[in-house]
Simulated assay, not measured.
Amino acid sequence: MYKLSASILNANFARLGDEIREVEDLIDELHLDVMDGHYVDNISFGLPVIGTLRKEFSSLVFDTHLMISHPERYWEEFIEAGSDILVFHLEATPKAFLILQRIKEKGRLAGISLNPATDVRLLEPVKDLLDRVLIMTVEPGFGGQRFLTPMLRKIEQAREILGDRVDIEVDGGINPTTIVEARSAGATTFVVGSSIFQSEDKRGEILRLREALAT
């Protein structure tokens, strides 16, 4: 099953609740990009926003992507705030194995994200603990970037290593054309932000993406 994860990074935060409500029945997950201004060159939002959204949207699946340094210090707080899926960067910590174990012990889905230049073969030691791998198809930190075509081969390699059990998510530059390319390479979950929330027809854009996936 293919899933759409709507990233709020490019939503209008002055009316964030209304923006999410406009599309919540058409999406599978809400993608929450947490940036600390250290691991990536941008600052987004953190625990208070996620906790508030969880109270407002109790039935949505929260797909939290930690683009932060030292995720080993903070992962549990993001679960307590309401994350259903917690993904952190392999490059950000030497304790990936331990974090994955503990996330799963808490009954949540655990995942690792890889930057474009990171070798996908580094997943081998932890692949049995993974529920999801997030392949960054742009450099992390900012929305609205163009899809990096060389990442298609990386998606294929990830699928070869992980088999069919693990969900492969892609994030960056997803539109009706690139979503088909990423699906063909082996991706199953697609993070879409600016093409939804910067569109005058948000619902129509989601339907176009779903139509592309169905072809």
Rank of each mutant, 00 (worst) to 15 (best):
D28M: 09
V61T: 15
E19N: 09
L130F: 12
S69W: 04
A14I: 08
E56H: 14
D131L: 07
L32G: 03
L30Y: 04
I112A: 10
D128S: 13
D25P: 00
N115D: 13
I43W: 00
I50D: 02
I85K: 01
V126Q: 02
L66Y: 09
E29Q: 14
P71N: 10
R54P: 01
F78R: 07
E91S: 04
S113N: 06
D41T: 02
P125W: 03
E19Q: 10
V40Q: 05
L122M: 04
A14M: 13
E22C: 09
R102D: 15
S113Q: 13
L32W: 05
F13Y: 14
E77T: 04
G111A: 12
M35E: 13
Y74A: 12
E72S: 04
Q101G: 12
P71K: 05
D63I: 05
M67S: 08
E24Q: 14
H70T: 12
I112T: 07
V49W: 02
D36K: 09
K55V: 04
N42K: 00
V49H: 02
M67K: 06
T64M: 00
L90M: 10
S113D: 02
G51A: 02
E19T: 05
L9S: 11
S44P: 03
L134N: 06
M67T: 08
I112P: 05
K55D: 14
L16W: 08
D41L: 08
F78M: 09
L114H: 12
D84C: 06
A11G: 04
E77F: 11
L122F: 01
V49T: 14
L26V: 04
P94D: 13
L98T: 15
G82Q: 12
E72Y: 01
L130I: 10
F57M: 11
I20H: 01
L122Q: 02
W75T: 05
H38P: 01
A96D: 13
L100G: 06
A110D: 11
F57S: 12
D128F: 00
D84V: 05
P48I: 03
P71L: 08
A92M: 05
D119W: 00
G17E: 14
E72D: 15
D84P: 07
F78T: 05
K104P: 07
L60V: 12
I68Y: 12
V40R: 08
H38L: 03
I103A: 10
P116E: 06
L130E: 13
A110Y: 06
L90D: 07
S83D: 04
R108C: 04
V23F: 00
V40P: 06
A92H: 05
A81K: 12
A11N: 03
N42A: 13
L47Q: 14
K106C: 12
I50E: 06
L32R: 03
